[in-house]
Nucleic acid binder design. Structure first.
Length: 893
RNA sequence: GCCGGUGUGGCGAAAUUGGCAGACGCACAAGACUUAAAAUCUUGCGAGGAUUAAACCUCAUGUCGGUUCGAGUCCGACCACCGGUACCA
């Protein structure tokens, strides 16, 4: 395809201008703003400006990428383009826009590369960042690069470690429902022993150590969070994962389950995303019921969401790992129970899931007494009951629970109906709401009331209580890896303590070998000198998971170069919106992929809430509005992947069609949230559109002259742009006609409304309509074209600014801060309307009517129409509907 | 299984509050320009029928039904695909 316009010359020269003028720097309160900066000129500001006098803020954030060796994928720039367009639009609307970018650069690939080659992960990481940055910058995004962050930079992770110490030094106070400094934790007076008191304190920290069954991945030599295990395999690499008890750092996210749930009501996220988070947190209301063991008299507590079915409990099941099993098991059953427990412990999660349909279990030779009717019911262990949820024990009501029913059928346990299903449905196996039967004092009550009555009864009898449970588990926060943030923790005499703040950052040691040690210790344990601290203390050898750095990066952007504090409170309250009336609390818009729907977004919200409780952030939710971009598929409609060979490299598109065409195509493909296939022919379409914009403004002969000049001396290619002249139809003096104003203002209106609603694809089509029209104009009023270029600027910034310079003669002007054109409804009104006439709902004719014509006038026009009359022949008009400004419908018979 | 989303021409899509289905673009076809091609410009382009031609008629937004003067849009049932989740009591 022949080059439509010299995009290569234009794009490099515009990008250089933006860099030289620091065009996209965002201004913090009190920061010195140079008088000649385009932002200063637009807002008539200069020097240090307090928050109260800065324009309203707009914080627009992309999910920062992991800089992989493969380079940028076309999926990345989709979100980045959308946010860039909005950032540029908001600047034109007069906002002070914060639009930063950085690198989530800790992670496994660099470490595994290091294990293979001995190359320090720092080296790989830096090379990858360099490549990512080059690719991102080639697309002309208006990031404020002075705020670039890199999670692996000691100047960054110093503060990640610092925030960890805040978690370590806090507890959750259920009375105030807030995180508070650990000093405020009331210690029971009965504890006089110092070590007992310490242990009590440690049990309440938000960052704590626990010996817990963890997901151990032998292949990766590390533990994984529940969220990183997919179908019993590691999310990264797909290696088998087994459960193994280990000493680990945990974060008490469960304490915030309710607040994380409640916070969703205050933010603008898609319903599906909120639903995913709600499901992940998994709140369920019910009751704990305590049964007495018939033989030993010990108490066994179960959790149920259906206390109304307590009369239907025919047996009880404990998780194989349940602590009471050893105590309850009878002598005869001991051997069989031990064998089952052994077998269950060796099963991976995958095996447990695969066998989900075929229930297994063993009777332990003990019985429990049902508190409502004193029935003796057998106690079993089975791995369909999870040790980690509720109390690790259930009462089984096979008549009204599918899992219990399957188990009861297999082991021939009794089934008692206690809920009457609605008419026409089988009560056995019915799990919905019905009416209680065979249930003593509950008989006749609908399920809702029966639950409530039973809970009150249990509480009165002191054998149970109302209880809310969450699926959410505490966050397993340590990894046995090298390439992550070291914990700022020391161990001495088996007791942990914080590294003094003055010693932060704790840097990782230098190693030759990045593998875990032979006896399973993390790689940091190899650094024998590094381990040693004063007075015999030793350093923690675990590192933090990759999520740590991304939990707070949006705060660091606000004050990225602050060496003394994680984020200046003054700047924080300005950008996080709590300073000005009407400003959005938190990041105004956050765009990224669905793959982070639960993990990153839940963790970051958790950290933010802790920081907020501790008075370190001013708002309670970090991301006010969040949009997920859809997946970009390959040309074959399949997910892009190296193995399918359908990966499109942005570099190739940029070199063939330019960054502007690339940006425009990514937005023209369809709605941002949808997944949609790539089609390079489609890029050519928008590329042709940009060519038409070029030819609308540039004189063809002067372009030929420029090309000749370039062919003579390629080194002066960029300078020869100055040979370009305006198209001869362009007039700086001609008044635009009413028709021309209408076309322009329709375009302004549509683009403005579509940008507000993030409908980029239709905004682009509106601009195409304008260009198609304007190409036919014999006289092209300069003012119309200039307004159009301001509209085009967010989408195709290089071309728009270059042509704007040609129109105005101001070649070195950054137009990013030019005011957004306003549309005037006066130019849009039509005098007449071609009104559709339907007969029985089918379009049959149209009549020209005055816009302000009344019902009678329209009716007369319609009935006068030859065509309409031909349909009325011999028929009766039953009804005549006139929708003013829309259409007419006649119902005839 | 459960939760969420999406089904519209050959393709990507539009139709914002129930009011002209298919804007805009791709692909394709014809024409202009050209020695020719590319590029560009013009025109056509849901399917079927009718006509010398045009006007015209019928059908059509996953399927079936409903509400309404009028349904891509609202309601009910179902089908397909995509994403999440899965023994969470």
């Amino acid at each position: 395809m022949r080059k439509q316009y010299p995009f290569d010359l234009i794009e490099s020269r515009r990008q250089r201008l933006w860099e030289e003028t620091k065009a996209f720097q965002a201004w913090n309160p009190g920061q010195e703003i140079p008088a000649e900066h385009p932002f200063a000129l637009r807002h008539a500001l200069s020097g240090p400006v307090p928050a109260s006098q800065l324009p309203p803020k707009y914080y627009i954030l992309d999910m920062f990428p992991y800089p992989s060796g493969a380079g940028l994928h076309v999926g990345h720039p989709e979100g980045y383009t959308a946010t860039d367009i909005l950032a540029r639009y908001k600047r034109a609307r007069g906002f002070n826009v914060l639009h930063p970018m950085g690198w989530d650069a800790f992670g496994l690939p660099a470490e595994q590369y290091a294990i293979k080659t001995g190359q320090h992960p720092r080296v790989t990481t830096e090379a990858n960042i360099h490549n990512f940055k080059r690719q991102i910058q080639s697309l002309g995004f208006s990031y404020d690069w002075s705020r670039e962050v890199d999670t692996t930079d000691p100047g960054y992770f110093q503060w990640t470690q610092w925030i960890f110490l805040r978690l370590y030094g806090s507890w959750y106070n259920p009375k105030t429902r807030r995180a508070e400094p650990i000093d405020s934790l009331p210690i029971p007076e009965s504890m006089d022993d110092a070590s007992e008191r310490d242990a009590y304190v440690d049990q309440h920290r938000l960052a704590f150590v626990a010996e817990a069954p963890v997901n151990w991945c032998p292949e990766l030599g590390t533990v994984l969070a529940n969220e990183e295990v997919v179908d019993g395999k590691s999310e990264v690499g797909g290696f088998p994962v087994v459960r193994k008890p280990m000493r680990q750092w945990m974060l008490r996210i469960t304490a915030f389950a309710e607040k994380l749930l409640e916070g969703l009501d205050d933010i603008e996220w898609s319903d599906s995303l909120k639903e995913m988070q709600r499901n992940w947190i998994g709140r369920s209301e019910g009751a704990e019921v305590t049964f007495e063991a018939a033989e030993s008299g010990s108490q066994i507590t179960v959790f149920t969401t259906r206390p109304d079915t307590l009369f239907g409990a025919t047996y009880m099941v404990l998780a194989p790992e349940h602590a009471l099993v050893d105590e309850l098991v009878s002598a005869e059953q001991r051997e069989e129970v031990a064998a089952y427990r052994e077998q269950a412990s060796r099963k991976s999660d995958l095996e447990r899931t695969e066998l989900a349909k075929d229930k297994t279990g063993v009777f332990i030779g003990a019985h429990a007494i049902n508190p409502v009717n004193q029935e003796r019911i057998p106690v079993w262990i089975a791995d369909y009951v999870l040790a980690t949820y509720g109390t690790g024990a259930i009462m089984a009501v096979p008549a009204h629970d599918a899992r219990d029913l399957a188990f009861a059928e297999k082991f021939q346990l009794p089934v008692i109906k206690v809920v009457q299903a609605p008419e026409g449905q089988d009560s056995i196996g019915f799990t919905g709401a019905g009416t209680s039967v065979n249930s003593g004092f509950l008989n006749g009550l609908p399920t809702d009331e029966a639950k409530e009555t039973m809970i009150q009864w249990l509480e009165a009898q002191q054998c149970g209580r109302r209880q809310i449970n969450y699926k959410l588990r505490d966050w397993l926060f340590s990894r046995q890896r090298f390439w992550g943030e070291p914990f700022p923790i020391l161990w001495k005499d088996g007791q942990h303590q914080a590294v003094p703040e003055a010693e932060l950052p704790v840097l990782p040691p230098s190693l030759k070998d990045y593998k875990p040690t032979a006896d399973g210790e993390p790689p940091l344990a190899r650094a024998t000198d590094w381990l040693k601290h004063e007075q015999g203390a030793k350093r923690e050898t675990n590192t933090m998971p990759q999520w740590a750095g991304s939990c707070w990066y949006y705060l660091r952007y606000i004050d990225a170069s602050n060496a003394n504090y994680f984020c200046d409170p003054e700047a924080e309250s300005y950008w996080m919106g709590t300073r000005a009336e009407g400003a959005t609390p938190g990041v105004d818009l956050y765009v990224g992929g669905t793959e982070h729907a639960v993990l990153h977004l839940l963790y970051a919200r958790f950290w933010h809430k802790v920081l907020h409780d501790l008075g370190l952030t001013s708002c309670s939710e970090p991301f006010y509005k969040l949009v997920n971009q859809g997946l970009i598929l390959g040309e074959d409609g399949q997910k892009m992947s190296k193995s399918r060979g359908n990966v499109v490299n942005p570099d190739d598109i940029v070199s063939a069609y330019g960054a502007d065409a690339f940006r425009l195509y990514e937005m023209f493909m369809g709605p941002l949230e949808m997944s949609k296939p790539w089609n390079t022919k489609g890029v050519e379409g928008v590329y042709r559109f940009l060519g038409r914009v070029w030819r609308l403004i540039v004189d063809e002969e002067s372009e030929v002259a420029m090309e000749q000049e370039i062919s003579l001396d390629a080194s002066r290619a960029e300078a020869s742009l100055s040979l370009l002249k305006l198209h001869r139809s362009i007039s700086g003096t001609a008044e635009p006609s009413a028709e021309q104003l209408k076309v322009l203002h329709q375009c302004i209106k549509k683009v403005t409304e579509d940008l507000e609603a993030m409908r980029f694809n239709t905004a682009i089509s509106a601009m195409m309509v304008f260009v198609n029209e304007a190409t036919n104009w014999e006289v092209r009023p300069l003012s119309c074209l200039r307004s159009f270029l301001v509209l085009l600027q967010p989408f195709a910034p290089h071309l728009a600014e270059e042509l704007h310079g040609l129109l105005t003669g101001q070649n070195h002007e950054v137009i990013a801060y030019h005011p957004w054109p306003a549309y005037d409804e006066a130019h849009l009104v039509e005098k007449t309307l071609s009104m559709p006439v339907q007969i029985n709902g089918k379009l049959r004719d149209r009549v020209e009517v005055a816009l302000d014509a009344d019902r009678e006038a329209i009716q007369a026009m319609v009935l006068a129409s030859e065509k309409v009359r031909s349909y009325l022949d011999g028929k009766e008009i039953k009804k005549l509907i006139v929708v003013p400004g829309k259409l007419v419908n006649l119902v005839v018979k």
